[in-house]
Amino acid sequence: MKKVSSRRLIIIFASLLLVSLAWMALQRLLPRNALIAEVYSDGRLVHTVDLNKVREPYIFELPHNRVLVEHGQISMHEADCPDHLCVKQGKISGGAYPIVCLPNRVMIRITGGGGVDAVAGR
């Protein structure tokens, strides 16, 4: 079998890295106006809220998680999982990255706004 040169490998990895970083930068630059937050539990949509219309912050309760809903942003307030990665992720107010609590199968995502988000989110 013909061996692949290291130079070629470096080019492959560098371009892959560049594409990933460009994609991440693009998601950051997208405008965020419509802020519809969706809370999923076990793959089912359990709560939908327009974050722009939230006046008073409130807590949405789930069996293992508590979601903090505020004006323009949403976060995982508490979780009973061992690592608390979802809580550490903090507040999200848009972008393509959903808050995911894998052990409890809870996900918070923000939809709307169109563009790449709508494509990446589906």
């Binding site: 990895f13 892959l16 890295l17 594409v19 990933s20 970083l21 994609w23 991440m24 998601q27 999923y40 076990d42 793959g43 393509a96 990255y97 959903p98 995911v100 894998l102 199968r105 996900m107 995502r109 990446a120 989110g121 589906r122």
Partner: peptide, 27 residues
Amino acid sequence: VAALVMRSSAVFAYTPVLVAAAIFVGA
């Protein structure tokens, strides 16, 4: 597995982040 467990493809939004991280960590 995350997509299967969450029954949602929204987690694939993390693909570019995970690919970039894998390149650094793997190297």
